[in-house]
Each structure stands twice: as C-alpha cells, then as structure tokens.
Design a protein around this nucleic acid. Structure first.
Lengths: 339, 339
DNA sequence: CTGAAAGCGCTTACAG
DNA sequence: CTGAAAGCGCTTACAG
C-alpha cells in the first residue's frame, strides 16, 4: 500500500513544547491545564491536523466507546429506521456504531459477529437473535451486553408486543367478509418459519377468526425466493379455499408479494385484498395506497439503545424504563375491501 | 460499564506453553511452525475462545485492513446495492468495511469522516463527493486513497457515463409526443441542484429535444422536503406549459414524486407519464410497473472497490481496468404512454 | 498545573 | 523452528 503518514500525539507535544501526557489531558478534557498551554496545544493540534488513533486510545484505556449493530438485511427499509433510532440514542452518549449488513446470510452474520468481538465492541444490538443463540454466547461470556430485538414475550405481555397490529388487521378482514386468507412468510435458511413471532401472529388470526365465527382457511405460505411467490399464489387461487385476502407476514415479504399479484394481473382490492407489513414512503405511494401493519422501528431502535446504555452504566435506569411498550398498529388504506 | 474480560494472546501462549511470538506466528500463518506446536496453540485458542484485539494488532502492525464507505443515505436502496458490490470485492481481498449512514446530513457526514480518520481506514469510498471536497483533503494529505462515485466526466466519455439512460428516456418521451416535461430533483442542503451530474442530464434532454424538433418546456423542480412535492406539482399543472411527463431526477426523488401524483389523484400513464430513477423490486411491482432509468449500482460498487484495491497495492491493475464502462439504461414499462 | 514511567495487547526484526 | 526484546500511539497513576 502507498505509505500513509499519520501525525502522532508525540508530534503535537513536540510542536507545542510540552510533555505528551499534557496533550493527552487536553484531548480528554481531563484535569486542569493552564489556559495558555491548552491554547498552544490546541493550535498545534489544528495546525498539524492531528487525529488521535482510536486503536492506541482504546488499547491504552480499555474502552472502545463502540456498539455493534447487526442488521439481518440492510436493504430492508425497516431495519434502516431501526438503525437510525439506535444511532441517535447512542451518539447522544458518545458511543459510535459499527454497522453490519447481514445480507440475509447466516455465514455473513457469523463472520461479522466475530469481527465485532475482535473490534471489542462494548455492546451489541441484534435483531432476529433467536437464529443466532449459539453465536451470541462468546459475547455473554466476555461480559458484553447483548440487546436483542424482536424477542418479545407475547405470553407475558412483554415490552415489545407485536400482536396488536395483526389482530386489528385480521379483525378488519373478517369484518369485511373475508373467509379464506393467506399469510406469506419469509422462510429463511437461518430461521424456522414458525418463529415465536410468527406463532403469535397466527394466534392473533385464530383469535380474530373465533371472534367473527369464521371457519375459513388460513394458508401459511413460506417463501424463500421471491420468484416462488407468483407460482405459489397461482396454485393457491386455483385450489380449494382460494384466499381472498393476502397478508405479508413480515417486511421483507411485501414487495415480492405485490410483484406476484401484479404478475397474475389481479386487481387490488377488487380481486384480492392486500395487507402489507411495514410502512414506508413506497407503501403509502403505492396504487392503491397499501393497508399496512405498521411498527415503529425507529422507536424500537431507541428503546434497545437506551436499555443497552443502562446496562453499560452510561444512563440512569429511568430513561430506559420510561420507554417500553411499542405496540404495532393497523393502518387501513386502499388495498383492503369487501371480497 | 460492567467489567468485560478478554482473553489475550499471552493467555493463549501460557496455556500452550510457548512464547507469545510463536502464537502470533500461527495466528498470522507466517513463518514455519512445527505442526505439533501449531496444533497445541490452535487448541488453546479454541478452548479459551481467543479473539485477537484489532486495536493491538493494527497498532503494532500499522495496518487496519479496513476501508470506510460513506453513503449519503442508507435508506436509499440503490446505495445498499452499491455497498454490497463494494463489500463483496473488498472482502475477497481480506478488507473489511466501516459503513456510515450519512442521513442526508452534511454535519453527520463530516463527523463520520473524522471518525474514519481516527479509525485509520486505509481507503475511503464516497458518493456525491463533490459536496465534500474540503472534508476529503485530510485523507489525501495522509496518503489515504479516496475513490469517489458519481464523479463521472461526461465530456471525456469517462468510465461512469450516466447519460445514456436519460437520453434514451427523453427520446422515448418525445417520440411518444410529449412536449412539456418536468424533472424533479433533490435539492439538498449540501449540494447545488446543478451538479455536474444534473447538468449532463439536462444536456441529454436538450439533445433529445433537438433531435425531435421539440420546443416545449423543461421544468426543473428542486425539492428539499417530500411534502413540497404535491403543491409544486399542482402549481405546475395549473400553469403555462403544464408538463405531461414527470421525471424523477435521482433515486431519492422517485417515491416522493409518486406520492405527489397519488395525492393529486392523477392516473398513470393516462394523466401523466412517469419516469422513475433507480430500479428496485418496488419499482417493478408498482402499478403500473414503472419505466425507469436503471443504473447498476452493484457493479459501480465493485468497480470502485477494485480501483481502490489497485491503489492500495492489493490487486493487479488489470482487474480494475477490465471494469469501467457502466452506462445506465432506460427500461420501458407501463408508466409512460402517449400524452 | 506538568513531567517521567509503565503498560495496554499485539507484531516484528533479531538471535539462537 | 522458537524465544526475548523493543516498539506501535496512546492513557493513567504517581511524583513533584
């Protein structure tokens, strides 16, 4: 590689005619330093364009002021929202983030977690952590707090209750007169379709069905490859109990499902009603505007970050417990109608 | 913070009954080591779950094996594509990435660039770099190669020619019979609307107009806030030379523009033709499917990464020069029609 | 208020 | 093939 030259703290000390430790003190704003020596040092810092080495700093201080965030899929707009929520909260407390794009690939995610370990992140925020249990052990062992998203506890009415939205959506559909519905879920190599989250979603369906005395079918359609979506849908519509309403089981599923509906030339909501998962500018600008199950990912990011800060001893407990209940909700727009 | 415990190389050495330097050697696969001592060391490494400290490693070796990527807006799917292209190429050569979300905010971007400097990235990949010229100087001075995207040289037929797509799009529109068109561009705090890229896009329009002998208006509509989109469009349609075709000037603009069209209750393509910028699953699944100017961001990411590797002395020149010409293209789908 | 010294966890010549 | 030593650029008690 081309030789890079980096100014060191010693350079600054020499230029300012002081001892390196004094430079360190003004850098860290610690201890009293005489105004004029401080000024001299700051001038030298600027003049030499000095940028302290993070490596040296964290090696010496045993702190990295860094948190790792593992996102299963950066191309998912909901995850970006989540990330920004976390970033906002953490940066306010002087932490910076290492962001990792999981690319929906467990191997990639494993490699990145190892990198986080080597980078000595002080905390970790992960989503879909149920798929990573084994990989998170080293963090726990090393005493690094891990804050997992989407690990809600429906039975205990946990803080991240994600049933409200589905429940409202299905009540809405059954009230409209739908009988047979299909939920398209993302079946990933790294996750069982019947995750806890999914299971609770299905419970919501069951509850709404009972309430409306409906006996229709609930098709659960696992999709690995977006291209499978159209054929699966076609088969479903040709079979018994053909669904009149199609639900995206999670945020990844929305676009592929819409693509399939498009490919089959179905009108929305005349031929089929659609409930999307995850609100975004695209969902609102779609034609017709999509009825969605909306979840505040930004807030979830902030919440997890706050909890992490508490566990790191960098924030009072109150801040985190003030947050907590982030239910999802159903937004009716134009894609759902009487079958 | 809760105390974290990290295993050190010395711990491994002790456990394996060898000198630390020997452990270092097997870690780095350097120098000959006797198979049985290697085995003993590897066993100890695994048993203790040793993960070398990146800080210590890069401090001692003066290498970080790290490249910074500054994306103006992580919520932009095109940028994610770009990122993955770069990541793929760089990881193949043992580099890892520090990803930064610019959040469309110059202040954020400046802060992150400073962090990259402290992190001692060995290279930098940025997009929209024309807005950052001042901020990139420290990198250049330090001898850190910077690879800028979207800094094409239209006059010289440079490697990243982005005129072909616009030209094709406008020829298409004028051939259909459109006379007055409007280009919606993202006016950002950190960038002049008339960027080099935009200027060349306007040149494409002029050329297509001349070819078709059209004398109609070309409205250029700078939008800062998505909410401004609908009122601006309404005014435009009520005024003289009302456009019959609306073009998104860049990838950020597409969704806001569609939202505005939706809000005004305009039919696509009956009332207005739409040309979107940037292809994605959403664009293809839209109703009607959107005619788009498509650009291969993944390839662009790979190209920039390859060039960077050459400059870092980590790849032969041939690899990078084999790449280069990545023109954009126009994809006609259902959102453009006779006015 | 400032300096001198030891040490953080590695790598890398240099001996042997 | 392996060990002992110095050093990377900082921070942090400890003196003064």
């Amino acid at each position: 590689m081309a030789e890079t030259h980096h100014v060191t703290l010693a350079d600054v000390a020499r230029a300012a005619g002081v001892n390196p430790s004094t430079v360190s003190r003004v850098l860290n704003g610690r201890a009293p330093v005489r105004p004029d020596t401080r000024a001299r040092i700051e001038a030298a810092t600027r003049r030499l364009r000095y940028h302290p080495s993070r490596s040296a700093r964290s090696l010496a201080s045993a702190r990295t002021w860094t948190v790792g965030v593992l996102l299963p899929d950066l191309a998912n707009l909901m995850h970006t929202e989540f990330l920004r929520g976390a970033q906002r909260t953490l940066q306010a407390r002087n932490f910076s983030l290492f962001i990792c794009d999981g690319q929906l690939d467990p191997a990639v995610q494993e490699a990145e977690l190892t990198r986080f370990l080597e980078l000595r992140v002080e905390g970790l925020i992960v989503t879909r952590s149920f798929t990573l249990t084994g990989l998170l052990e080293p963090f726990v062992e090393a005493g690094i707090p891990v804050e997992p998203a989407e690990l809600f506890e429906p039975d205990e009415g946990g803080p991240r209750d994600r049933r409200a939205g589905s429940l409202a959506a299905f009540r809405h559909l059954y009230a409209l007169g739908h009988r047979d519905v299909a939920v398209f879920v993302h079946e990933r190599a790294d996750a069982p379709v019947r995750s806890r989250e999914m299971r609770s979603r299905l419970e919501s369906i069951a509850r709404a069905r009972d309430e409306h005395g409906v006996r229709g079918a609930v098709h659960v359609v696992p999709i690995g490859d977006p291209a499978d979506c159209a054929p699966r849908l076609r088969a479903l519509l040709a079979g018994d109990d053909a669904p009149t309403a199609l639900i995206a089981g999670n945020d990844w599923m929305t676009a592929p499902l819409l693509g399939a509906v498009q490919e089959l030339g179905l009108a929305i909501p005349e031929d089929v009603s659609i409930v999307a998962y995850g609100d975004s500018r695209w969902a609102a600008a779609y034609r017709p505007p999509l009825s969605v199950i909306r979840y505040d990912y930004h807030e979830e990011g902030e919440t997890l970050a706050s909890r992490l800060l508490v566990r790191l001893g960098e924030a009072a407990d109150a801040a985190a417990s003030a947050r907590g209940l982030v239910p999802d909700e159903f937004l009716e727009r134009g894609s759902t109608a009487v079958p």
